[in-house]
Simulated assay, not measured.
Amino acid sequence: MNKELFDYPKQDASGATCIAQAWAKVPESLSKEEKSQTIQAIKSELQKQNAVLVAHYYVDGDIQDLAWETGGMVADSLEMARFGKNHPAQKLIVAGVKFMGESAKILSPEKTVLMPDLDATCSLDLGCPSDDFEKFCDAHPDREVVVYANTSAAVKARADWMVTSSCALAIAHHLHQQGKKILWAPDRHLGRYIQDQTGADMLLWEGHCIVHDEFKAIELETLKKKHPEALILVHPESPEHVVELADVVGSTSAMIKAVVEGTAQEYIVATDKGILHRMRQLAPGKTLIEAPTAGNSATCKSCAHCPWMAMNGLKGILHCLTHQSGEILIDSSISQDASRCIERMLKFTADHPDLLAKAQHGFVKNIGAA
């Protein structure tokens, strides 16, 4: 099993070589009256412009609620894009980070896709520049190129497959069964987890999510002692020793499902704390506890909340609607190439529901054994 890591000095949005110092513009706080007025104005513009709002689980709760109230959707990145593709609206407002807007545009090239702030990005995306990734792929032509959804359209255009955390394990298992070697990018933690679960020969790009990378096993163990009956839910972008402590390892959707359908009363949640809003709505009688990061030693300034997701604000949504700002534009050749790896993933998930369900069930080990 090849555990070689491709070392790349990742960059943050300011151009520095340390993503630990990722910055973000904080939306202005609104009074109760201002918030109400802004929400009403957004509802009016959405209806007037035949637009729909889709939001990620990690954005502000007010935005999530607004998406549901106006006939939109709150979901993970792929479901956001698929919903937008199938919705009759000709304009999509994407509250999330840039790669999510790009995915929506790739699947709906004929629609206008707007975002509240185009500077809202992702450390995984920033840490995998397309030019360097192209060289990496060219150096290993014998490998199937598999990229995570948290990448740019240009990186997806170079890939054979795009995957999400919901289907990555199943697709890697499938490729391994076919005897194929994998070039994986960009999250090293998710790549290592899939590699360990499937036994696949994977060459890993050295990237990480600045939020999930800050969860620490020693802090989690201490918290578990205080809540011995709590189940631990961990996103697979987290470090290895954190994943090892989990009762359930899975995507945002899988973690929400675990809380809603689980019989436990308490849950320790190791992912972006924005997800707690939806969890509390769907499981109001259960206790949700934020998993600890490294406390004062943490390099990430987000405190278990993505600083770029936090850039999405109500005023920003209204501004992009009234000024038609923040439009996602992708070169047609890149969009066409990127669409192939996404459509390939969608076809696989449609054709292999049993394998997908098995892999999604808490990311149980040794999925190929049964």
Results as ranks from 00 to 15, higher is better:
L126E: 09
C128R: 03
P129A: 05
P129I: 11
D131M: 11
D131C: 00
D132V: 07
F133R: 02
C137A: 15
P141L: 11
P141G: 10
D142E: 15
D142Y: 03
V145M: 06
V146H: 01
V146C: 04
N150W: 04
T151G: 03
T151E: 05
S152F: 04
A154C: 05
K156F: 03
K156W: 00
R158C: 10
A159V: 09
D160H: 14
W161I: 07
W161H: 05
M162I: 06
L169P: 01
L169C: 01
A170G: 06
A172G: 00
H173F: 07
Q178E: 13
I182P: 00
L183A: 14
L183N: 04
W184G: 02
R188M: 13
L190P: 01
L190C: 06
Q195A: 12
Q195G: 09
Q197V: 06
M202S: 05
H208I: 05
C209I: 10
H212V: 10
D213E: 15
E214D: 14
F215L: 07
I218Q: 15
E219K: 13
E219L: 04
L220G: 07
L220M: 06
E221T: 14
P228V: 13
E229D: 15
L233K: 09
H235E: 03
P236H: 09
P236N: 12
E240R: 14
E240T: 14
V242K: 07
V243T: 11
E244Y: 02
